[in-house]
Simulated assay, not measured.
Amino acid sequence: MILLFSALACGETPKEKPAESIKTVAKDSIKEDTKILQEKDTLNIEKEDEPFVLTEDNAIDFFFEYQKGLPTTRIKITTSLGSFVVQLYDNVPYHKANFIYLTKKGYFDNTMFHRVVKDFIIQGGNADNRETAAKRREIGRYLLPPDTRKGYKHHRGTISMPSSEIDNPHMLASPYEFFIVVTKPGSYHLDGNYTPFGRVIDGMDVVDLINQQPVDDGDWPSKNIYIHKAEILN
């Protein structure tokens, strides 16, 4: 917030100047000071009313504070083909905090599993509707750094975060999407490039059912598979 203040300049008052003139100057100064304070209060109110938006500059600091004290968390994802439960890892703080934050904001509701690769992964969190695009604008545009050294591997049932495809040599994670490994026993060639941040602990049969749906040449399901709701269980 930048405040522009008017400079109040008072020249040296001659000794012979009547007292009334000094009082007038003082009164005018009070009026001007009052005006400045009123303008400042107005600007403060406008600033407080501005919605918070995540950016490349503030996202890491925000999630560093947001993740403090977050409990071990399970999230239930209800889809048009059934529901499953994900347990988030505690020691992958930024990715855990991001997923919880987006869940609380209702971001995932009415998105889709938009990419299905047979016997490999299902990928969700995107949609070709205006609602999803509007949610992203309101939440902000940012990426997350990879966190691949916590010992987690891409076993079957692992939930992980894909990298952004736009000018991204450091494999920064696209925060709005996630994928779940279906491969038995896992897809370990992904280790070191993507960040596992949880695992499916209930409803893996629903994940498999989603993975079995017919898709087009671009791996987009022939029939939309919706995420109706993502909700925190504890």
Rank of each mutant, 00 (worst) to 15 (best):
Q213V: 14
K229Y: 03
P196Q: 08
K229A: 02
L144R: 02
Q67C: 13
T79K: 06
P71C: 09
D41F: 10
V181K: 00
Y94N: 05
Q38A: 12
E138C: 07
P185D: 04
T55R: 06
S80M: 09
F64M: 10
F179S: 00
T78S: 14
N193P: 00
M161R: 03
K27M: 13
F62A: 10
I22V: 15
Y152T: 06
Y188Q: 09
V181W: 01
Y152K: 06
I2M: 08
Y89T: 01
E48L: 15
D33H: 11
L144Q: 01
D205Y: 01
T183L: 04
D49L: 15
L37Y: 12
K31Y: 11
S163R: 13
M1K: 04
K153M: 07
L143E: 07
T24L: 14
D49M: 15
A133G: 10
D61H: 08
E20L: 15
D202N: 10
K40W: 13
G125T: 10
K27W: 13
R199C: 01
K23F: 12
D128W: 02
S160V: 10
V116I: 15
P221L: 05
P93A: 10
D41I: 14
E16A: 14
P14D: 14
T55I: 13
F84C: 08
R130A: 13
V53T: 15
A7H: 05
Y194K: 01
Y152L: 05
A59Y: 08
K153L: 06
K118T: 10
Y142W: 11
R115I: 12
N234L: 05
P93L: 12
H155S: 04
Y176T: 03
D219G: 01
D61C: 04
L81Q: 08
A127L: 03
G124H: 02
I22D: 00
T78C: 01
I100D: 01
A7P: 01
C10Y: 05
M1Q: 04
I30W: 04
H114P: 04
H114V: 08
P185R: 11
K27A: 15
L143F: 08
V215C: 09
Y188V: 09
Y101H: 12
K135T: 09
M161K: 07
V86S: 03
T111Y: 04
L43E: 12
Y101G: 05
N110Q: 10
F113E: 04
A26V: 15
G125F: 05
F64T: 13
N129T: 10
K105D: 02
L102H: 04
P214Q: 07
Y226F: 14
G203I: 09
P185A: 06
F63K: 05
G82H: 11
S187P: 00
L172C: 07
R130Y: 06
Y226S: 03
K23D: 14
R115H: 03
P196I: 11
P175E: 04
V92G: 03
E56Q: 14
D57C: 02
E138S: 15
N211D: 14
F113W: 05
I232H: 03
V117D: 02
L190H: 00
